[in-house]
Structure formats: structure tokens, C-alpha cells
């Protein structure tokens, strides 16, 4: 019974998301365009699949992954905290009082978890799957969906990992964000032009349904464990970084792919140039 109620809730939430979109499309279709939608039955079927699929997806996450992942994200900081306190007492350091200064080396499990959870949740992000499909189609296959998604995923993983390190060290967020944007500006002028709009888009796509709850829980857990950190600011800081770094990694992916192709082409060209010269002489 409980599961049925939860399904209904998820379905209603998704429908509420869809209704305004539906209203806008129907109004403009009927009042302005006055043209039947091609293959209407198929579109209606597909819309039903999208709504039901997204509801089941969110419900399954709620049921299986989020409780476990969130609990782990919040507990992980305790391990590092335990090492902080225990290590200082054993070595007889000066910081034996109430205020134990966090040692960034004790939080390696947190960095590892942050990286792997950032990568894996991004690969499961439905909105990114959609953008990847479209990019592969539009580019005629020169941008691979899987390659693009891996680039975004590594960007998010790196960002979340760096973000947790930032929380432990207590570096102010604006410095990190500012230097990140400087790198983005420089890269924009170096990267192939075709990738830039896509790279910027992938920054916004990552802050979606799967990644945000787990990453926010990680920031919250760390900020509450370490004294002097503000849970509100630090939780949001991780997400801000997670939407900045994919821009860099996607442009980097394109730069690398460009170099790789040019290197391969010049080698091929070299082979071709050699062959005729051999036969002619």
C-alpha cells in the first residue's frame, strides 16, 4: 500500500512539472501555429513514457540509493574527524584542547568518495543523457555521447573532490570559483569553436535530479563535522563548483580530440606522401 501511495506521489510531482509545458505547447499549437503535430499518436505515447519513466526513476532512487548514499555521505566526515582527534592525542600535539585543527590528510576517504560519487551520479543523469544523444546526432557522430558524458562526469567528480578539500582547508569559495572562471575564459579562446556552446550547456545540466541530493549531503556532513564551516554556504558551494568544472573538462576533451585527430591525420598524410615518392623514384 505504501509503495502505491509513493508511486502516486511521484507521478503527481512529475505531472505538475509537465502541465505548464503542456499548456504552453497546446496553446501555441492551436492558437498560433494551427498545424497538426506530425505523428501525434506517437508523440502522446512518448510523452506518457517520459512521465511514467521519470516517476519510476525518481521513486526507485528514493527507495534504493538516496537513503544509503546520503547516510554514507554524512558519516564519511566522521572517519576523518576521528583520525584528527585520535592522531593529535597520540602524537601529543599542541592542539589537544577542544579545538582540533582538521588535518587535510585524514580525509582521504572523503575525497575518494566525493570523486567516485560525482562521476557515477553524473553518468546516471537523465538530462545529460538527453543532451549527449542530441549532440551525437547533430555533430554527425564526431562528438560521441559517451565521450561527452564521461568528460562531464570527470569534471563533476574532480569538482566535488576539490570542493571537499576546500571545505576541510577552509579556503573561501570565491577564490576557487574566480580562478575557475579565469581558466574557462582562457580555454574558450583556445578550444574548437563548435564545442563551446555545448560545454557551457553541460555546466547547467549537471545540477539535476541524481547528483544534487548526494553532493549536498556530502557538503552538509563535512560542514557539520568540521567546526567553523557553515552548512548552508558549503553545501551550495559544492554544487557551484560541480557546474563550473564540466565546462573545463568538456572543452579539454574537445581540445584533446582535436590534437589527437590532427596527429593521426598528419601521420596518415605522412604515410601517403611517402608511398607515392617511393613508387615514383
Amino acid at each position: 500500500m505504501n509503495a502505491i501511495a509513493a508511486t502516486a506521489d511521484a507521478l503527481i510531482a512529475t505531472l505538475r512539472d509537465v502541465l505548464p509545458i503542456l499548456a504552453v505547447i497546446v496553446f501555441f499549437q492551436l492558437a498560433v501555429l494551427r498545424r497538426p503535430i506530425p505523428r501525434l499518436a506517437r508523440v502522446l505515447w512518448g510523452s506518457a513514457l517520459v512521465v511514467v519513466g521519470l516517476s519510476l526513476f525518481l521513486m526507485g532512487l528514493e527507495l534504493a540509493l538516496f537513503p544509503l548514499g546520503e547516510a554514507m555521505a554524512e558519516q564519511l566526515a566522521e572517519i576523518g574527524r576521528g583520525l584528527d582527534v585520535g592522531g593529535d592525542a597520540g602524537a601529543g600535539d599542541a592542539g589537544a584542547g577542544d579545538e582540533v585543527v582538521p588535518d587535510w590528510r585524514n580525509y582521504y576517504w572523503t575525497y575518494l568518495f566525493a570523486f567516485t560519487i560525482g562521476v557515477s551520479t553524473t553518468l546516471a543523469e537523465p538530462a545529460l543523457i538527453a543532451v549527449g544523444m542530441k549532440a551525437e546526432e547533430v555533430s554527425g557522430g564526431s562528438i560521441r555521447s559517451w565521450g561527452l558524458r564521461l568528460a562531464v562526469a570527470f569534471g563533476v567528480g574532480f569538482a566535488v573532490s576539490l570542493g571537499t578539500l576546500r571545505i576541510v582547508l577552509g579556503i573561501p569559495l570565491p577564490y576557487v570559483v574566480l580562478s575557475g572562471y579565469l581558466v574557462v575564459v582562457v580555454q574558450t579562446y583556445l578550444a574548437p569553436k563548435e564545442i563551446i556552446p555545448l560545454a557551457y550547456d553541460s555546466g547547467g545540466v549537471t545540477t539535476s535530479t541524481v547528483t544534487v541530493p548526494l553532493v549536498a549531503a556530502l557538503g552538509l556532513g563535512l560542514a557539520t563535522q568540521i567546526p567553523g564551516r557553515d552548512p548552508m554556504v558549503d553545501g551550495f558551494g559544492l554544487i557551484a563548483l560541480a557546474s563550473l568544472f564540466p565546462i573545463m573538462t568538456v572543452m579539454g576533451y574537445a581540445q584533446f580530440a582535436g590534437w589527437w585527430n590532427r596527429w593521426r591525420d598528419t601521420r596518415k598524410l605522412g604515410d601517403q606522401n611517402e608511398e607515392p615518392s617511393c613508387t615514383s623514384s
Binding site: G46, L49, V50, V52, G53, L54, F57, G60, I129, M133
Partner: peptide
């Protein structure tokens, strides 16, 4: 059960993308 729902849900969503949202 949750994992099964996640897999089925994502599959339906992606199928619906191609049929409805993109076109």
C-alpha cells in the same frame, strides 16, 4: 525493487525522449 524501478524508469524515459520530446 528500487534498483529495478530505476532501470525500468530510465529506459522508459529515454525511449520517450526519442518518441516525444525531441520530435
Amino acid at each position: 525493487l528500487g534498483l529495478a524501478l530505476v532501470v525500468v524508469g530510465l529506459t522508459l524515459f529515454v525511449a520517450g525522449l526519442d518518441m516525444a520530446l525531441f520530435p
